[in-house]
Design a protein around this nucleic acid. Structure first.
Length: 194
DNA sequence: ATCTAGATCGGCT
DNA sequence: GCCGATCTAGATG
């Protein structure tokens, strides 16, 4: 992996979250930790919108969901099912709610650290699923509100042109008929639900 | 291959 | 009190 990773600018995230989700495929999620630099290629994401999207935490304004109205490029980390953390990046202009959930990565750098954190060996099981992804990337509740446009945790330019994009319904969502806002890299072994 | 339950707890009605 | 933007292990066909 080359050493040069440049963060995406804030303007990238200040758009419709569905467009941001699609455009995120092929770019990198990077975390510079004490253990070393962890890098994954983004291969699966889901878009969530505001009060008009019943599947979104921002369907209502609550203390937890408030952050989805904040500055684009901000991290939204939430806890679910008593066990797992999920990482999102806030989208849309400030004052409009929206976010993209990171669902799966292709591990690119720091695989050994990821293996240790996950307790599994197979590369396609390291970060294929939102809970697995945060565990592999050493992301937790302390990152809620972090700025994902600058180190140590950020989204960096990759190779989006080389991705065959597929779309589908969001996973685990019942109240979202007619909103196929999950995007993933076609035929990638690193997406969830293989 | 497909299903089921259990873990485990914060946020919300 | 209920249930979730999940994962894993174990059972069953």
């Amino acid at each position: 992996m080359n050493a040069d990773l440049r963060p995406l600018p804030r303007a990238f995230f200040a758009r419709n979250s569905v467009d941001v989700a699609r455009d995120l495929l092929g770019h990198f999620l990077v975390h510079e930790t004490r253990q070393g630099r962890l890098v994954g290629r983004i291969v699966e994401v889901e878009a969530y919108r505001g009060p008009r999207d019943p599947a979104s935490h921002a369907y209502r304004l609550t203390p937890r969901s408030r952050i989805m109205w904040s500055q684009p490029g901000t991290a939204y980390v939430y806890f679910t099912y008593g066990n797992h953390y999920c990482l999102n990046v806030v989208c849309e202009p400030e004052g409009t709610a929206g976010a993209v959930l990171f669902r799966a990565l292709q591990p690119v750098e720091g695989r050994d650290v990821m293996r240790r954190a996950r307790g599994v060996d197979a590369p396609h099981l390291l970060a294929s699923g939102p809970g697995r992804l945060t565990q592999a990337m050493a992301v937790g509740p302390e990152h809620n509100g972090a700025d994902l446009t600058r180190p140590p945790l950020y989204v960096a330019y990759g190779d989006p042109a080389g991705v065959r994009i597929k779309r589908s319904g969001r996973i685990g969502i019942t109240a979202a008929a007619g909103r196929p806002w999950r995007f993933y890299a076609d035929r990638s072994p690193f997406v969830s639900r293989r």
